[in-house]
């Protein structure tokens, strides 16, 4: 049974019925947590440059990302990152630590299905699209630069 008008009316009614939650605090939390993660990154970056002066700016940047990825992966393992996520939302999804979390969490989750079919296959079930899309877009941008 299909009735387009009835369905549309019902969908509009449901949309109006959905409780309006207070979103403002979560914006503040995401700002705070996101900002703090970036501060941490800058701190790591500057510390690396201070300890190893021969490291280039560029290399220090990669090291900084690796350290952040390590921290996020470890916190995910301890079961703490999802708790930050409930509080911070976008604040812990958007930084590179969120990328790390979205790779470590399915790997952990599906390890009972085995190392090959669990960990290795499912590892990219959340973050896979990011890498695929990223590679495609870098290819397109490279191609455009090749011809201009």
């Amino acid at each position: 049974m299909n009735d387009i008008e009835r369905d549309k009316k019902y969908n509009d009614y449901v949309q109006a019925k959905i409780p309006k939650t207070k979103n403002f605090p979560t914006l503040i939390y995401s700002y705070l947590v996101g900002g703090i993660i970036c501060l941490l990154g800058q701190g790591i970056h500057d510390a690396i440059l201070a300890i190893w002066p021969q490291v280039t700016q560029e290399q220090a940047n990669v090291w900084m990302l690796i350290v952040l990825i390590f921290i996020a992966s470890f916190l995910t393992g301890l079961g703490l990152y999802d708790k930050i996520g409930i509080f911070a939302g976008g604040g812990s999804i958007v930084p590179i630590t969120g990328f790390s979390n979205s790779i470590t969490s399915p790997a952990m989750e599906y390890k009972k299905e085995g190392i090959i079919f669990g960990i290795c296959v499912k590892m990219f079930s959340v973050a896979g699209p990011v890498i695929v899309n990223g590679v495609v877009i870098s290819f397109i941008i490279g191609l455009i630069y090749l011809f201009i």
Partner: peptide, 17 residues
């Protein structure tokens, strides 16, 4: 959660509905 949604340790928020 494993079958229908996301890994448990993924740091996302559940929608209010």
């Amino acid at each position: 959660e494993r079958q229908y949604r996301y890994p448990l340790e993924l740091g996302n928020q559940r929608p209010p509905t």
